[in-house]
Amino acid sequence: MLQEHCKLLAVLKQTGEIVGRKKLQKLIYIAKKLDFPFFERYQFHFYGPYSEELNLRVEEMSHLDFITEIKEKKGGYQQYRYALSDKGADFLALSNYELPETKGILNVLNEQSSRFLELVSTVLYFEDLPRAEVEEKVVTLKAKQNYSQEEINEAYWFIEQLCKKAASAEANE
């Protein structure tokens, strides 16, 4: 019953709280790219990979009171904080859904800034291209974010670490 919703509830249970819609979007995208079983469809948008399906699913869970959504002002824009509610926890328990072993990857992702996750997810989106072309895409498509070469290098290193962790999680399944 509503398995894709349950997966998101399980993510919130594991991470405790996710601050920002952008962070939530990128976190699920990166997890999906690491072969965790998320099936929301993503397209490339203004801030990188974005899923309208995920956006709507989160809205549904908020209407069902399965998650709490706190809206707060942050500089010139609104930011949302998401956490699992008691009702959501009951629903998750009833569904018997369990996330596969993630070796703490979701928490590692949740500790990063949205800006960094935007870069990481963009690099992953273009993973089939040679690195030079990916960097060119980052510079062209993310001109306003003005990512430095150091940040791009860090993103590649971070992805490498994530892949190792994901592989060890898979081996332990």
């Binding site: 952008k22 549904e60 824009y77 609104q78 949302y80």
Partner: peptide
Amino acid sequence: VIDSSSDLPYDFYRPGEEEERL
């Protein structure tokens, strides 16, 4: 079978806040 609105590939206009859509 439960069918949810998020199972469908359509939406209507939302200007959004902290959204990704232009």
